[in-house]
């Protein structure tokens, strides 16, 4: 595939190869807005009856800020930028009393503070390329009890990487004190590899270091059984037909009442998932490419193929 590889890759997918051989090749530019804009993603998912957190309302322009007062009726909600990258600009409100709101991190906020935050979102502070953005207010996801030992701050999520419609790798992302409740590995969250057949976690990664225990709580990371695992995989393979992207990541949260919900999609999923799983992506991706009739397979068959591949490599 390439002319000059000075370093052995050991089956590990690097940034250059991800871009040149996978995202540039299989993700047509014109479909990017569907995943980069969370409002569009939400709309598409809802059209296809795939569960996602309920949208309360959106604020598109500065003059609509006055509608933000509606939140006074809400106790728990999340404010997000539509085009935010890597979990930036997300404000999760967990409680409300006479003085105002409380974030999931325990910080007190007044109406003024929230308005300032939404203003910044609209100005494009958190968007991918700094362009003007929209903000939306959605359902506050309450984490499934199985994650209770890890949920002092934030909500864990589950990322599934889908290559040409076949789930190839997955990880559970656990927020930490350092990541300030965000489930993003760049910001210091912990990633735990997931056995694709059983849905049980193996060891994890924290800031590119292999770890066995959660850095905040000291709880072992391996051995968590993810609830609704088969349902998550079934839902994941269905999204391939909707978004027409060949290589992307799907982020699920498991709500204690609503079950698995798709939070967002990512057309440039990170590479640390390989560290979390202690396994390179390349052998699995090549195994999918070896399947010549891949484009004709139904979602159910792709799931079967996925199980075959992860058993083999």
């Amino acid at each position: 595939m390439s002319f000059f590889h000075p370093f052995r890759d050991n089956g590990i997918l690097g940034m250059n190869r991800r871009n040149a051989c996978y995202t540039l090749r299989y993700n047509p530019r014109k479909f990017y807005p569907l995943v980069d804009d969370k409002l569009q993603t939400k709309q598409l998912l809802e059209e296809h009856a795939i569960p996602t957190p309920i949208l309360y309302f959106e604020i598109r322009y500065e003059f609509e800020l006055k509608y933000l007062r509606q939140i006074k009726h809400l106790k728990k909600f999340a404010i997000k930028p539509a085009r935010g990258a890597e979990g930036r600009g997300i404000l999760v409100i967990a409680d409300k009393d006479e003085q105002g709101w409380k974030t999931s991190g325990g910080e007190r906020l007044t109406m003024e503070d929230i308005e300032y935050h939404v203003s910044n979102i609209l100005a494009g502070l958190y968007s991918l390329s700094g362009v003007d953005d929209h903000a939306f207010i959605e359902y506050f996801v309450q984490s499934h009890p199985v994650f209770r030992p890890f949920t002092e701050k934030g909500v864990p999520d589950i990322r599934v990487i889908l290559y040409r419609g076949v789930p190839v790798m997955s990880m559970l992302r656990l927020p930490t004190m350092e990541s300030r409740g965000k489930a993003n590995l760049h910001q210091g969250a912990v990633g735990a590899g997931v056995d694709m057949l059983s849905g049980i976690t193996v060891g994890g990664v924290h800031k590119n270091m292999l770890i066995e225990k959660h850095p905040d709580t000291g709880q072992p990371i391996a051995g968590i059984t993810l609830p609704h695992w088969n349902y998550i995989l079934e839902t994941a393979v269905k999204t391939y037909e909707i978004f027409k992207l060949g290589y992307f990541g799907i982020d699920f949260v498991i709500d204690r009442y609503l079950g698995p919900l798709i939070l967002e999609l990512n057309a440039r999923p990170g590479l640390s998932i390989q560290l979390a799983n202690r396994h390179g992506l390349l052998p699995r991706l090549s195994a999918v490419d070896r399947q010549t009739d891949i484009e004709t397979l139904a979602p159910r068959d792709r799931l079967a193929l996925s199980r075959e591949i992860v058993t083999a490599v």
């Binding site: 590889h5 370093f7 890759d9 690097g14 190869r17 390989q274 396994h279």
Partner: peptide, 23 residues
């Protein structure tokens, strides 16, 4: 040619050093 270079980056050798060792 650089635009089709798909080799692993030097900093990624460091980033994935533990995984390399395992492999």
């Amino acid at each position: 040619l650089l635009g089709r270079y798909t080799g692993i980056r030097l900093t990624e050798l460091w980033r994935f050093r533990d995984l390399h060792k395992l492999q």
